[in-house]
């Protein structure tokens, strides 16, 4: 089979985004085949929008499983409006999860981490309610050093704990799917993507976003958590192209605006072992 045969169409050369996309589609199709019931965590942020988009790529324009939004009740109003609009436009089967009040959360955690841990508790009750075996989450290795240790298929034991010291081997696109009662698998289709890849893909595919990501009055959000624990960064990037240019010039960590990452050296790891994303 020669590529140079005249008159025969050659396949399009794949660039880095094509390769990331193909790999993520493969992972989503594995999850859909192997893990039922399955659901996708839709935080309404840029990464999870990319993930919904990739699911539609994998399944010919539809998302054949429910998406979950774990609602802390503290998101920005723009995010709730976005949720309503795109649940309809993308024909999503949306499941909402509530979070317990902060008073019920481990008081030994620093304040912002304690607030974030509400989301973990909300997620846990959704997983139990729907007896989920697979939860698709949009974390990336480049976000945070602890996440860099993750697997694409990451088993969670009883109590949803992440056993970071005893993770299964994962190679050659083979994913472990051990199963005992009370376990589920976190699936991470975006693990190999970097922040800049996400933005370039959003630009290429024209994926809609909450406009909080774009600068107004010299400030924009680089990462969106709850209103009370996320702060905007100084920026004049008000378009996709400007955001991409800004990131290419910057070396600041994306989660610099997320308070719980910086409260103590091990706060984030403690959150993750307990089931935070």
């Amino acid at each position: 089979m020669s590529l140079a045969t005249p008159g025969v169409v050659s396949p399009r050369a794949m660039d880095d985004l094509d390769q990331l996309e193909a790999q993520s589609i493969f992972v989503l199709r594995e999850a859909y085949r192997k893990l039922r019931p399955l659901s996708l965590l839709w935080s309404l942020g840029k990464d999870s929008n990319v993930m919904v988009w990739l699911a539609r790529k994998a399944f010919m324009g539809r998302v054949p499983f429910p998406v979950m939004h774990v609602d802390t009740g503290k998101k920005f109003p723009e995010m709730y409006a976005f949720r309503e609009e795109y649940t309809r436009k993308w024909n999503l089967d949306l499941m909402l999860g509530d979070c317990p009040p902060v008073e019920e959360i481990d008081p030994s955690l620093p304040p912002a981490a304690r607030s974030a841990a509400r989301k973990t508790a909300g997620l846990a009750s959704l997983i139990e309610k729907h007896k989920l075996r697979g939860v698709i989450a949009g974390i990336r290795r480049d976000e945070q050093a602890t996440r860099a240790k993750e697997r694409v298929f990451s088993p969670r034991g009883a109590g949803h704990r992440w056993d970071v010291r005893n993770q299964p081997p994962e190679f050659w696109d083979q994913y472990a799917t051990p199963y005992e009662d009370g376990m589920h698998i976190r699936v991470h289709p975006l693990l190999s993507w970097r922040e800049i890849d996400i933005w370039r893909y959003i630009e290429r595919e024209n994926i809609p976003l909450v406009d909080l990501y774009f600068a107004k009055n010299g400030k924009r959000y680089r990462s969106l958590g709850d209103q009370d624990i996320t702060s905007p960064i100084d920026s004049d990037a008000s378009t996709l192209a400007e955001v991409i240019a800004e990131l290419e010039a910057s070396k600041t960590s994306e989660r610099a605006g997320r308070a719980m990452d910086h409260e103590s050296e091990d706060a984030f790891e403690r959150l993750r072992v307990a089931g935070y994303l």
């Binding site: 169409v9 050659s10 396949p11 794949m14 094509d18 790999q23 493969f26 010919m60």
Partner: peptide, 19 residues
């Protein structure tokens, strides 16, 4: 050769996830 939201082309090569 089926894809969603991608340029329509009747050919695909190694590495592509298709239907």
């Amino acid at each position: 050769i089926c894809r969603w939201h991608a340029p329509e082309t009747p050919v695909a090569g190694a590495g592509e996830s298709i239907a």
